[in-house]
């Protein structure tokens, strides 16, 4: 299938190993991608860990976040604000999207998902799958109807990025032999911030304690007077909000297209990460995100330098990781049989 290992490949691979700027380039790109993946997948992990819900609608939330951010960026005229103003507005939009999608998550949890907790877990997959079909098609209607991106729902909408991404973020900085873009730096710092935030939420807050207790032993937590149902709602809201936030980040990243198929394009790698890390394990998700990010970056590098001439090599490799991991360690990196863990 990959019939195109040209003689060039060897020389290029040696180049990668000997050229420090290539190595750091791939590393930084991998970290940036890993941070994005972390933002996408962490909500999925939280929801699964506590509620045993495999949330197929997660990607749709990300897609909604990206579209809302795109519309907001264009409507507010972020492009003409200057660097600090643009960045500030961007973060405000991000918080607004978080809140909006968290509210949407609460609505879904209370009206639909709550009814199925007693059913076998497969029904949760079915329900959220139904939600994602409906949400995607609704967005398609809106895109066609409101003439967003000239009504093209399956082609990337890059007008918001082109008009609003500050040149400070788009340009490349060079320190010694290390090349990086401002955007990569921002993505990595966002990833670290989300990581720290979730860690603090789980380990330092009272609600985080409830969540961990619920994961550990739901019935015992109930017996001790913790309102698990409300904790479920809260965690679903946080997970949905995080998915939306990731969408806002993707809006600025040139490697991702803002379109309706984004929902699935995001969902499938997120599943891979969550499963490779071990279902429900926060630690595992963090490790798997960066692992997948690095491999993705390596694949992209291999394609760009012409080692492999296969357009979607990164996607192919992501699913290959899933298959190989499930063969080697069927429960993922940090998965535990039965319940997931947070640590």
């Amino acid at each position: 299938m990959i019939d195109v290992l040209t003689p060039l490949a060897l020389a290029e691979t040696v180049d990668l190993l000997t050229s420090p700027s290539d190595i750091t380039g791939v590393l930084i790109e991998g970290l940036a991608k890993g941070s994005l993946y972390l933002m996408i997948a962490v909500g999925l992990t939280l929801i699964f860990g506590l509620m045993d819900v495999i949330n197929f609608a997660h990607g749709a939330f990300t897609m909604y976040g990206a579209y809302i951010a795109g519309v907001a960026v264009l409507a507010l005229g972020v492009g003409s604000m200057g660097f600090v103003g643009a960045l500030g507005t961007f973060f405000i939009i991000m918080i607004a999207v978080f809140v909006l999608l968290a509210v949407l998550g609460v609505i879904f949890e209370v009206t639909l998902i709550r009814k199925l907790y007693e059913y076998p877990p497969i029904f949760m997959i079915l329900l959220t799958f139904g939600i994602t079909i409906t949400m995607e098609e609704l967005m398609r209607m809106i895109v066609e109807f409101r003439d967003i991106n000239s009504g093209q729902w399956d082609i990337g909408w890059d007008a918001p990025r082109q008009s609003s991404l500050p040149s400070e973020l788009g340009g490349t900085t060079e320190i010694g032999f290390v090349n990086f873009t401002g955007l990569q730096l921002m993505q990595i710092s966002m990833g670290v911030a989300v990581l720290a935030g979730i860690w603090a939420f789980l380990n330092k807050t009272r609600y985080g304690l409830f969540v961990r207790a619920g994961v550990e032993d739901e019935e015992m937590a109930r017996a001790l007077g913790i309102d698990i149902n409300r904790t479920f709602t809260a965690v679903f809201a946080v997970g949905s909000g995080l998915a939306g936030m990731a969408g806002v980040m993707l809006m600025w990243d040139p490697l991702w297209d803002v379109n309706v198929p984004l929902a699935l394009a995001v969902l499938l790698p997120a599943f891979v990460i969550v499963i490779v890390g071990g279902l429900g394990s926060f630690k595992g998700t963090v490790v798997a995100s960066f692992l997948v990010g690095l491999i993705d970056a390596l694949g992209t590098w291999a394609f760009q330098t012409g080692v492999i001439q296969f357009t979607d090599i990164d996607q192919l490799m992501i699913f290959a990781i899933l298959v190989v991991m499930l063969i080697l360690r069927p429960r993922g990196l940090f998965g535990v049989k039965g319940q997931g863990d947070h640590g």
Partner: peptide, 12 residues
């Protein structure tokens, strides 16, 4: 869109 809604109703 309608398929999704019908599906949700059936699952529930």
């Amino acid at each position: 869109f309608y398929a999704g809604i019908i599906f949700i109703i059936f699952v529930l």
